[in-house]
Design a protein around this nucleic acid. Structure first.
Length: 358
DNA sequence: AACAGCCTCAACCGCCGATGC
DNA sequence: AGCATCGGCGGTTGAGGCTGT
């Protein structure tokens, strides 16, 4: 037997709200509050609406100090950055953008930013004062010139300066920003814990750090890994996570150290060609096994896309600045790392074509 | 002007966790 | 402990408006 419906669907009005309904709901809540019971609210007011519908209408539309449309570039950046790091947790993202609702951001992402990332939009957006798509960057795929012809890298040609910034997409030692949440993560590994056998757990950890799994690469360094999550949760700060095979003396070890709000990847061992010597850096490790990285991004980036999501983690991602921000993620105040040019990089993907594609 | 296709976004749906009984 | 209820969340839908032909 299923769960009882929250309201009598037969006697509940659906569809767009009328101004009268809005006025009723708004005036009541402004006078009396929600009373902590949305389900009972419509009956008190005399609205033939589901309580959940009232809640949604209030939160997404009637609530004071809401902004609609006109996302600024800075908001774009924040959304991009947070989406890359935490995925589609719209309520969390919305908490960082005063006046924005999760629904708003979700819609904006799905209709604009996602396409902006891919450069799929066909025409200039309508009625968007702050929204301005510029085609200022070209992105090419080319062989890196660092002496390793086997590695591919993205070349950003920003602002048509012709100054190609060829970069290895995931350098051997890269410092990535730590995004502020969740401040506690299931930490999948400790040195003394023999139960480190859950690849999904480490995948999740690495995903939090911004990795990608395509499933296209088998990675021997992950073979036989013990990735069982430890009991409970550990504070995901100022810790080191050693990613490597405990069973192989010659295994490459990727060290993910989290200190002072920075994540550092480093690797050692004679199998490190998988990690950096061939130019793919730790990301190759990250590409080891099937993915649950923010599915929308995964979907946007084909599995054979050289370098995976590195274009989201280019140099600019490293050169970050901090935006101080209050957050709802916990009781402590924390910081967002604002990737200054992420969105412009996204814009730069306009006109990008995949290998073999015209 | 008419039509078709595209785009946006408000609203709905269903699931899940928390809470109370 | 088990169940019912509620709030909250993310995914999806569809009506209406806009644009291109």
């Amino acid at each position: 037997m299923g769960r009882a419906p929250c309201c009598d669907k037969a006697n509940v009005k659906k569809g767009p709200w009328s101004p009268e309904e809005d006025a009723k709901l708004k005036s009541y809540i402004e006078k009396h509050g929600t009373g902590g019971n949305w389900i009972a609210l419509p009956q008190k007011i005399g609205l033939k609406r589901c309580g959940k519908s009232c809640r949604l209408r209030w939160l997404n539309y009637l609530r004071p100090n809401l902004k609609h449309g006109g996302f600024s570039e800075e908001e774009d950046n924040i959304i991009c950055s947070l989406y890359v790091s935490i995925g589609s947790r719209w309520s969390v993202i919305a908490a960082q953008l005063p006046g924005r609702t999760d629904n708003d951001i979700k819609n904006y992402w799905n209709t604009r930013l996602k396409k902006k990332l891919l450069g799929k939009h066909r025409r200039e957006p309508r009625n968007r004062g702050n929204y301005n798509i510029k085609q200022e960057s070209d992105v090419n795929i080319g062989n890196s010139t660092d002496g390793d012809s086997s590695s591919l890298s993205l070349v950003h040609e920003n602002s048509r300066t012709n100054q190609q910034q060829q970069q290895q997409c995931w350098p051997q030692n890269i410092t990535m920003p730590v995004l502020p949440l969740p401040l506690t993560l299931p930490l999948p590994y400790t040195d003394h814990d023999p139960g480190f056998n859950d690849q999904d757990s480490i995948r999740k950890l690495l995903i939090k750090l911004g990795g990608r799994f395509s499933g296209d690469y088998y990675h021997p360094a992950l073979d036989g890994l013990n990735l069982e999550p430890s009991d409970g949760q550990q504070v995901f700060q100022d810790q080191q996570v050693h990613v490597g095979s405990s069973s192989s003396s010659s295994a490459c070890t990727a060290t993910v150290s989290i200190n002072n709000n920075e994540v550092q990847f480093a690797q050692s061992g004679d199998q490190c060609r998988y990690f950096g010597a061939q130019g793919s850096g730790v990301n190759t490790l990250l590409q080891g096994h099937g993915s649950n990285l923010t599915p929308a991004i995964e979907e946007m980036v084909p599995s054979d896309f050289p370098g995976g999501l590195e274009f989201l983690y280019g140099e600019d991602m490293i050169d970050h600045k901090i935006i101080e921000s209050a957050t709802n993620w916990g009781e402590t105040s924390t910081s967002i790392y604002h990737h200054n040019s992420l969105a412009s990089n996204c814009q730069g993907l306009e006109g990008f074509s995949y290998p073999g594609e015209q």
